[in-house]
């Protein structure tokens, strides 16, 4: 574990440079430039808000637009980071074939690049908070930890996915479908409170209710999104009980994913 960290520290300049490159290249010949980064969560927020006015989703005492935007921020970060992470090795095949450095640099760079876009969305969130006259509390200091956790979840999927994608491009094709399904299984359009109320309070699925809720929260994004809303909008501590199942899952899977990636790494240049 320490060795991995030391190795990555050694290559920090490379990660920084590659990240800078990714961002520059993406928005270089675009008039709107990096503004595109925030347009997607904004557009989704508007659509969801529109849908909400027909369907009626209980958002508690927080205005729905800002609630869903706060959900979209970690979600979009996770979705983009994972997608880019999986594609990263194949996209850099010219480098993979010519020059050696630890290959996990590629997914890691792809994921960190998304942090920048996340940071820009944060300004929009801040603007929304000013608009709705919501003051941040000290709990907002939890945000970096929550985002670090999201990053690890992304890396878990990206490492194994990127390694398989080198041999079988199916992964890259299948992932967008899986992720858009996962969005509905995550509290993006609706708040986690709704699921909690249904399963834990009303016991809607009878004796299965508690188990179902645990399964639901195995999805790390359930805990992440809810906690992000908690610390930013509600001024509360993260809800650790809803984060625990996903965390356990991540702690188990991340090392496995990493080990798989490293064992495949040697063959990347041959099959890519």
């Amino acid at each position: 574990m320490l060795k991995i960290a030391r190795n990555l520290y050694e290559y920090r300049e490379l990660v920084t440079e590659l990240t800078r490159k990714d961002i520059t290249v993406r928005y270089k010949q675009a008039y709107l430039g990096i503004a595109w980064a925030v347009l997607r969560p904004l557009a989704l927020m508007l659509i969801f808000t529109l849908v909400k006015s027909f369907v009626g989703i209980e958002s508690g005492d927080i205005p729905y637009p800002i609630l869903t935007f706060a959900a979209l921020m970690p979600w979009v970060f996770f979705q983009d980071a994972t997608t880019e992470g999986i594609e990263s090795v194949v996209k850099n095949s010219a480098l993979v074939r010519k020059i050696y450095f630890p290959r996990e640099i590629f997914p890691l760079t792809a994921v960190t690049t998304k942090l920048v876009e996340f940071g820009i969305s944060a300004f929009i969130l801040a603007a929304l908070m000013v608009w709705y006259q919501m003051a941040p509390t000290v709990h907002i200091l939890w945000v970096p930890l929550i985002i670090l956790y999201t990053l690890l979840v992304s890396m878990t999927i990206a490492l194994i996915g990127a390694a398989i994608n080198v041999s079988y491009r199916d992964v890259g094709a299948a992932l967008p479908i899986m992720l858009s399904l996962l969005m509905y299984a995550s509290p993006v359009i609706y708040p986690l409170q709704l699921v909690k109320d249904k399963l834990l309070t009303q016991q809607a699925a009878g004796e299965w209710s508690d188990l179902l809720y645990t399964i639901y929260t195995l999805n790390p994004l359930a805990g992440i999104i809810d906690s992000f809303q908690n610390v930013v909008l509600r001024g509360q501590l993260p809800d650790f009980s809803s984060m625990l199942p996903g965390m356990v899952l991540t702690v188990i899977l991340l090392p496995l994913s990493y080990r798989f990636f490293k064992s495949e790494e040697a063959y990347f240049a041959d099959v890519i």
């Binding site: 440079e17 074939r97 450095f101």
Partner: peptide, 24 residues
């Protein structure tokens, strides 16, 4: 290997040299 068409010469020097393991 690793020259990026969209980047300027200056940016490519920094990127490519870093890839080759030269410190900033």
């Amino acid at each position: 290997a690793g020259l990026i068409p969209d980047l300027t010469g200056r940016e490519n020097i920094f990127l490519n040299a870093t890839i080759l393991g030269i410190s900033r």
